[in-house]
Structures are given as structure tokens and as C-alpha cells.
Design a protein around this nucleic acid. Structure first.
Lengths: 185, 185
DNA sequence: CCGCGATGCGTACATATGTACATATCGCCG
DNA sequence: CGGCGATATGTACATATGTACGCATCGCGG
């Protein structure tokens, strides 16, 4: 019989990590197994234990990748704003647009929050994520305002994903305006 | 040998549901099994399939119980406020106090959010939860303000659980004040 | 007081899962 | 160009898990 083909697959490790996130998004951490990830990444089962010491290690690394990725796009979006008004509009976009607070990203965030409760390394990853978000916001706003905006983005995104009639762009803009208005006299 | 004791255990079903929440809080949905719940509830394995058709049914009912319970306490806390100022203080308490946004409740919420993505019945439960929260807030605030306060409670609670130096009571109060202030002229 | 249906209890079993491992292959460095 | 270390692949195996089922027991309605 012909020798079974052996692939040359230099970025297999990275593909496995992406496949892990896909699998989590589709089946939840609870339904994520070596075999499912392997199928999604199109690699044999043996590759799992070769590239990652354990399933927990794999998930931890995948979630870290997610945090870095999402965090980077957040920072990028805010860095593109030149004026304070543009920064406000960027914040509105982050909540309302289809590019960032996607169902997939939100879902993965929930899974991460839950999973991180049991993995100290991921707790630190989340702290780093939050720190980077704040730093990005502090390019345009005071630390206190950055903090509240960050929390507001989180809360609004979550509620918009649950709400049958989510807040519209105008309503979100009004909220951002109110939170970033100068202090009352 | 002596006949093994057979217990009279009328509220076993309810105890199993509470044990399920305990198990989820401790091990996550991913680590929640019939056997672990049974051990936590101190019942034999056979009781699981007797009282609940499947593990998913059991988890769904447990999460529904959680939502009803937390939602009721939220409503209760806000109903106790007589004036608008008291309502503001109640909101601050909900974020900052140890009684509501506990690590356990937050953790269970993350698990619920993630799990609900795959169970339509729980999506409706979450919508009902959000609706009840808004209704409770609308006893004191306009619908638009209620909506933003609800999102803010969510976002601030989550971020406070991650933050190494969480926002203090004063800072939270300032945010609430700003969000509930009359519209600018 | 009696019986019967609801409930309690232990166990069996097919299946899925994490992980280890033996072996084969081949890119790359010297 | 030679070989060796990194990687690819298939499979084995012990264990955990969901669920079904048979039987025992007893509260409670008639």
C-alpha cells in the first residue's frame, strides 16, 4: 500500500490554537476535547499531546491568544482617533459596530471569565487585558473616565447581546457624551 | 446484614439543584458531572436520572433558579428605597457591597452566559432577568437611565472582580451621580 | 389498615476522553 | 550530502461519564 502522506505543517501549532478557539465558540469549554480540536485543525490526535502538555495548557494558551488579539484591536481602534470627539465616536463604534463586540468575541469572553476563575495564569492575562484597555482610553481621557468607559463598554456590550431591542447608536452616544462631559460646576 | 437505611427526603429535588449550583461554582460547567452533584447533594447516583431527564435539563433548571433568586434580591433591594437618593445609594451598594456582586454570583453568571448561548430556554431566562432588573430600576429612574444603570452595574461588577485596585465606593457613587443627573441644558 | 404508586438505591454498560508511546519521516544544519 | 533532532501519525489503555434498569421500601389516599 502507498505510504501514508506525511504533511509538512510548520504553523500547525498556531492552527491548533485557532481551532481551539473555534471549538470553544461552538461547543463551549465544557464540550471542548482533544479530538474535537484536532478535527477542527485537521490534525491527528497525537499532535495534541505533542504540541501541548495538557488540554488545560492548550486552553490557557488559546485564551491568552484571544486576549492579546482582541486587546490589540481595541488599542488600534482607539489609537486611530486624533481628537477627543473621534475617540468618543470610536468608543461608540466598539460597542455598536459588528467588528468588535461580535457574538463570538462575547461568547469567548464569557468562557474566558469562567475558565480564568480556576487558572491563575489567566487571571493575570485578564488583568493585563484590562490594563491595556485602560491605557488605550487614557490616551484621550482621564484615568477615572477611562475606567468608567471601559466598564461601560463591557456592560453595554453584554446587555446589547441579550436585549431583544438593543440600545441604538444614538443612545450609546448619549451615554458616552454624558460620561465624558466635563464635571458639573 | 441489616437492611440499608432508606431516607425520607421530600425536598431532595431542590437540594440537588442547589448542589448543582455549588458544583458549577466550584468546578465550572466543564467539571460538573452527575456524580459530583450527587456527592454534593449527598444522594445516590440513581437520583440524578430519576429527578431530571438529563444533565442538561438539570443545569438549565439550576441556572433558572439562580436567575430568579438573584433577580428577586436585586428587586427587593431597590424596592426598599423610598427616595431617588436612596435608590442611587442602593445601586452603589449593589456594585460595592459584599452581598450581591459576590465572587460566587459573578462566577455563576459567567457560566450562565456561556451556557445560555447553547440553550434557548436560558436565553429567555436571561432576557427575563434583564427585564426584571430594568423594571426595578424604573421604579426610580426613567427607562433610558434604568437601561444604562443596569449595564453599568454589570460592567463595574465584572471589572471590580478583575481589578487589583477596584473602584471604591466614592468613585462608584460619582459615576451613578453622573449617570442620574438631569440632562444638561 | 391496605395496597400502590412514588421515591430511594445500587449497579451495569456502552461510549468518550485524556494521555502515553512506538514508529516513521523529513527539513535543516554542519 | 549525511544524519539527527524535530515533528507527524496511528493506536493503545485506563479511567470517567451519562444513562438505563431492576429491585426495595414506604408514605399516603381510600
Amino acid at each position: 500500500m502507498p505510504a501514508p502522506t506525511r504533511r509538512y505543517d510548520p504553523d500547525r501549532r498556531a492552527r491548533i490554537l485557532r481551532a481551539a478557539l473555534d471549538t470553544i465558540a461552538m461547543h463551549g469549554v465544557a464540550g471542548t476535547t482533544h479530538r474535537r480540536i484536532a478535527a477542527a485543525a485537521d490534525v491527528p490526535l497525537g499532535s495534541m499531546t505533542y504540541h501541548f502538555a495538557s488540554l488545560d495548557d492548550l486552553l490557557t494558551e488559546a485564551f491568552t491568544l484571544l486576549a492579546d488579539d482582541v486587546s490589540a484591536r481595541f488599542t488600534e481602534r482607539l489609537a486611530a482617533a486624533g481628537t477627543r470627539a473621534e475617540a468618543c465616536e470610536a468608543v461608540v463604534d466598539l460597542v455598536v459596530d459588528d467588528g468588535w463586540a461580535t457574538p463570538r468575541n462575547l461568547l469567548l469572553s464569557y468562557e474566558l471569565y469562567a475558565y480564568a476563575a480556576r487558572v491563575p495564569a489567566l487571571r493575570r492575562v485578564m488583568q493585563g487585558w484590562m490594563g491595556k484597555s485602560r491605557a488605550a482610553l487614557e490616551q484621550h481621557f482621564s484615568p477615572a473616565t477611562a475606567r468608567v468607559l471601559d466598564a461601560m463598554i463591557e456592560g453595554l456590550s453584554i446587555h446589547r447581546s441579550v436585549d431583544l431591542a438593543p440600545a441604538g447608536r444614538d443612545e450609546v452616544r448619549a451615554i458616552v457624551t454624558r460620561l465624558t462631559a466635563p464635571p458639573l460646576p
